[in-house]
């Protein structure tokens, strides 16, 4: 009998597992998709991974690649700097919705407007999970969080942010913007792979938003977690590609 090993992507760091995310957290699945995409493209030796503040920073020892951890949303400009210093590298800015859309949104907007040749992966779980589940820019209307106990009131706090739609609107030709979901793993992996390939081809800004689960702060069991991400979230956050470089459509 051969020795049975866990089927982890080769780019994962096996010594830091089990990883630090909560049971049922979607970060593990997004990072699994990213790891498999890195393996399939064979670029592990030239990837630089930048993680943000929030739950996403728990991925600082996740991969066997060079990793930088920066402040809220600042992972985007740090990755832009690394890419400009050494264009041969493949840089991945990994952030949550709080870091990318609220506190550090100016960096995302400016990097997208300049069409920087980097890949951004933004994980959307509709709340600030690390600080206890407060309302985030992506909290859906009527959704209950710690700071919206009666549900998000759009009269008072506005509507949630639609990131890939915004990036698709402000970027120039050559950019890539898509939204995947951890409930559709193969699709998410395809989007992440296309985003990495778009960067490697030097076409432009590549942005993937990944809808993710947060059973700890949603206070859901496994069945309710799948129901929330597959039915409730996709109603407000449609999946798909919003901007594809010309000639690269499916």
């Amino acid at each position: 009998m051969v020795e049975i090993l866990p089927k982890m992507p080769k780019s994962w760091n096996p010594e830091s597992k089990p990883h630090k995310f909560c049971p049922g957290c979607g970060h593990g699945l997004v990072l699994k998709a990213l790891g498999q995409a890195i393996d399939e493209l064979g670029i592990q030796d030239r990837v630089v991974f930048g993680c943000d503040i929030g739950c996403s920073l728990l991925s600082w020892d996740f991969f066997n690649v060079d990793t930088v951890q920066t402040h809220h949303g600042r992972t985007t400009p740090v990755m832009v700097g690394i890419k400009r210093a050494n264009p041969n590298l493949v840089v991945v800015a990994y952030m949550g919705d709080g870091g990318g859309y609220a506190i550090g949104s100016q960096h995302l907007v400016n990097a997208a407007t300049r069409n920087e040749k980097i890949t951004c992966i933004l994980v959307n779980n509709t709340n600030y999970a690390m600080t206890g589940g407060q309302m985030a820019p992506t909290t859906m209307p009527g959704q209950k969080t710690e700071t919206t106990p009666y549900g998000r009131d759009v009269e008072e706090t506005g509507y949630p942010m639609l990131g890939p739609e915004m990036v698709a609107a402000i970027t120039r030709e050559g950019a890539y913007a898509a939204r995947g979901s951890v409930a559709k793993f193969a699709q998410l992996k395809k989007y992440i792979k296309k985003a990495l390939e778009n960067q490697m081809a030097g076409r432009g800004f590549s942005f993937v938003e990944a809808l993710s689960t947060c059973p700890t702060n949603w206070r859901t069991n496994a069945a309710q977690t799948w129901q929330f991400i597959e039915e409730t979230m996709t109603k407000y956050f449609p999946l798909g590609e919003f901007k594809v470089p010309e000639g690269k459509e499916d």
């Binding site: 049975i4 597992k17 049922g24 957290c25 496994a222 069945a223 977690t225 799948w226």
Partner: peptide
């Protein structure tokens, strides 16, 4: 690692309790 022979012996289901956090996503 705990293994179970499944699908009439055509496959082996292996689970690593040192990795499983009991979230139940697979079960659903």
């Amino acid at each position: 690692v705990y293994t179970t022979e499944v699908n009439k012996g055509k496959a082996v289901f292996a689970i690593f309790p040192g990795l499983c956090k009991g979230c139940g996503l697979c079960k659903e």
